[in-house]
Design a binder for these strands. Structure first.
Lengths: 296, 296
DNA sequence: CAGAAGTGATGCACTAGATGCAGCAGTCGG
DNA sequence: CCGACTGCTGCATCTAGTGCATCACTTCTG
């Protein structure tokens, strides 16, 4: 849309950190870009950038302006969706930020099923840790977030919540597999594989052990749950994951950790607070909510 | 702001009803205006206007676009207010739609007191009947509405509520003035002066009499409460008003109608649902809320 | 029924505003 | 001190928006 050109210019300068670098990305001269930004600042009535010797940086006013433009762009898409809807088209795009556990089974299955009914709707799925997912909502890069134990919950409207206890993953012939549920300390006696600090499962394990004499001593640490699951096939260790992300081969099995040791994590579906979603994301969210209720 | 030019053009065409008339208001040629609108529709991806033999009319998609632009303009003002605020200026503008009863005493007194503390803030006050006030909020023409018994309450967030029983206004020597409170039927036996149908006081009286054998037979009907109050000085009749709008000379007096006959009206301070107000209106609203609490 | 007075759309010439180029002054790191 | 960066600006160029005249059409009018 023509009238949002200034916004793209501002965003490009913010990202590139200087007018000259941004001008290359935008295929215009630094001179033109510089003047557009100056003109915008004049019209707006305040400086948007700090001029540093090494380039440009957004000042607080600029942050506000950028946020305004993002909201505005999002709202324009929403209106375009509504219009397309009332002209009978029924198409649109949904952008989701989700935890890694949703990537292998739950989301692909559900999105495929949804697209079978609504072929005009396209999707983009971003895997984000629990902090970055919320950030994505704030910057309007994602419409929805499906996250295990988000960090801040500010600017986050919860649409649906599912409780997910942590499961320990082990080889099927591991002696621990004989029990129905496991105590955390039993797992820690075995070599264990831990997710990186940014992930909710790690955080939940650490809070569970806070103030106890036990501690986590990872044999292997990774930011890929896929890697961790496969690693157990090669070393007789314990990995951790929530059930929604689990579907194991016969050689592996999983057992829930006792709720006495580790509180179950909340898997939350949410959107940016105060934002009215475009048609397609709003409907898909409704469909997701139903699917999550069937799990619980 | 430069990038909202298209919006002003679209709005002008909507108001004028045709490109040629709008082009005169905008001091450009019909040709240029026509092309800008065509280009916008092309960029947007859908027709915004119906082309009628007698001119242009917004279609449903256009209504949505206009609403989007209004929200966007309002949000831009909000951001500008925030920026001005953090650069220490503390200025702004507040636009209020209110019922007639607020015009003589309450609002002028309160606004003057507020401006004594915050001289940088300017005001515009629109007198609107209970339907039009809500309409003003929806079209972003007013930031706040202070209305007796609004009609729909959809898209209306109530910030504060005060109960206002109807008072009968009469000459001080009227025999009814001897009682502390009046029954409605006693008033109807006297000649009475009624507000026009669009006003809440009239509506409250009519609903109070619905299903009874009594009826309203106005000796005089007016859309000006000021006129009605003064009329009583010239004919010994009964007029009606809520107490917040009353401050009578010695020759006149007022008595509340019994709550058994007429339920008190709700005087509501509200804003458009989901809208985040600019700094100045938001602060003034807080101040109004306190003032209203002191009344109740 | 013909003509007048509206309407929006469009081809063409023109102008004004946006762009590109070159060069300025300044800061920083070596 | 120098080279490599930065943002900024005067001047020439060019594109995109504007104005004018006109067309095709509908509605109202006499």
């Amino acid at each position: 849309m023509r009238h949002l050109k200034d916004f793209h210019f501002i965003e490009a300068v913010m990202r590139a950190g200087s007018i000259r670098k941004a001008s290359e990305d935008l295929n215009i001269t630094a001179s033109a870009l510089n003047r557009r930004i100056q003109r915008f600042e004049e019209d707006f009535g305040a400086q948007i950038f700090e001029r540093l010797p090494r380039g440009m940086r957004l000042n607080p006013a600029g942050e506000l302006v950028l946020q305004h433009f993002r909201a505005q762009q999002s709202d324009l898409r929403r209106v375009q969706g509504l219009v397309a809807d009332l002209s009978g088209e029924r198409r649109g795009h949904v952008s989701i930020a989700c935890s890694q556990a949703l990537a292998p089974y739950f989301l692909p299955e559900h999105i495929a099923a949804y697209r079978a009914k609504h072929p005009g709707v396209s999707f983009s799925v971003q895997i984000r840790d629990r902090d970055a997912a919320e950030q994505d909502l704030r910057s309007f890069e994602s419409d929805l977030a499906l996250v295990l134990e988000p960090v801040h919950l500010v600017d986050f409207t919860v649409l649906s919540a599912v409780s997910q206890p942590i499961h320990a993953i082990m080889r099927a012939d591991n002696p621990l597999a004989k029990r129905a549920e496991l105590r955390l300390r039993d797992c820690l006696d075995h070599p264990h594989v831990l997710p990186a600090r940014a992930y909710a499962v790690r955080h939940m394990l650490e809070t569970a052990l806070a103030g106890t004499s036990h501690g986590l001593t990872a044999a292997v640490e990774s930011d890929s749950f896929d890697f961790m699951r496969h690693y157990v096939e090669f070393e007789d260790a314990i990995a951790f994951q929530i059930p929604i992300g689990l579907r194991l081969p016969d050689t592996l099995t999983s057992r829930p950790l006792s709720l006495r040791d580790v509180a179950p994590g909340a898997l939350l579906l949410g959107q940016l607070k105060g934002r009215s979603l475009p048609v397609a994301p709003a409907r898909f969210a409704q469909s997701l909510i139903r699917a999550l209720q069937n799990i619980a």
